[in-house]
């Protein structure tokens, strides 16, 4: 859990870190705390996994990765741990999860995100995944993203 100070820190940073020479000092100043205290808090939040990393989220489209395919697979339940680990280890897979099916409409339980400069490249990578899954895969599909509709990240509600 997080205390009120942590919450204020998260709220101050959820829009992003300022692009200035001393960003933590600026944020600390806004919060009315010494920079050293803020750095200590951030370090603790990182150690607890509340902050995964402080980094840039690139826009795949603007980097020429214009084809983004969410590949989905119906994999036998007793083999998904083994096969999901193999698919997740492929260098071109950026996210890989087991998720519940929503039968009868949605039989797929393995999701693997694949990016490429065009759909042919994505299809080649998808074929590599299909080859690894082999007979353990009963159905498959791919959903290309055609538009980013929103991208903001977690927002904490204001409290009190």
């Amino acid at each position: 859990m997080i205390d009120e100070t942590d919450r204020q820190i998260i709220q101050a940073l959820q829009g992003g870190l300022p692009l200035v020479s001393a960003p933590y000092a600026q944020v600390a100043d806004d919060l009315g705390m010494p920079e050293a205290d803020l750095l200590e808090r951030l370090s603790a939040l990182k150690a607890r996994g509340v902050i995964r990393r402080i980094a840039a989220a690139p826009n795949h489209y603007k980097l020429g990765m214009t084809s983004n395919g969410m590949t989905v697979w119906d994999v036998e339940d007793d083999r998904i741990a083994e096969l999901g680990t193999q698919i997740g280890a492929l260098p071109f897979v950026t996210h890989c999860y087991e998720r519940p099916r929503a039968l009868p409409d949605w039989p797929f339980n393995l999701f693997a995100m694949v990016h490429g400069s065009d759909r042919d490249e994505v299809e080649e990578k998808r074929a590599e995944i299909a080859a690894i899954l082999g007979d353990a895969c009963r159905a498959k599909d791919i959903l290309y993203s055609t538009r980013i509709l929103k991208k903001t990240g977690l927002r904490l509600k204001k409290k009190g």
């Binding site: 995964r52 402080i54 840039a56």
Partner: peptide
């Protein structure tokens, strides 16, 4: 080109 720069929070960890 950068959609966001800053900490990535894990909602599950809080």
């Amino acid at each position: 080109v950068i959609t966001r720069f800053g900490p990535f929070f894990d909602a599950a960890a809080i």
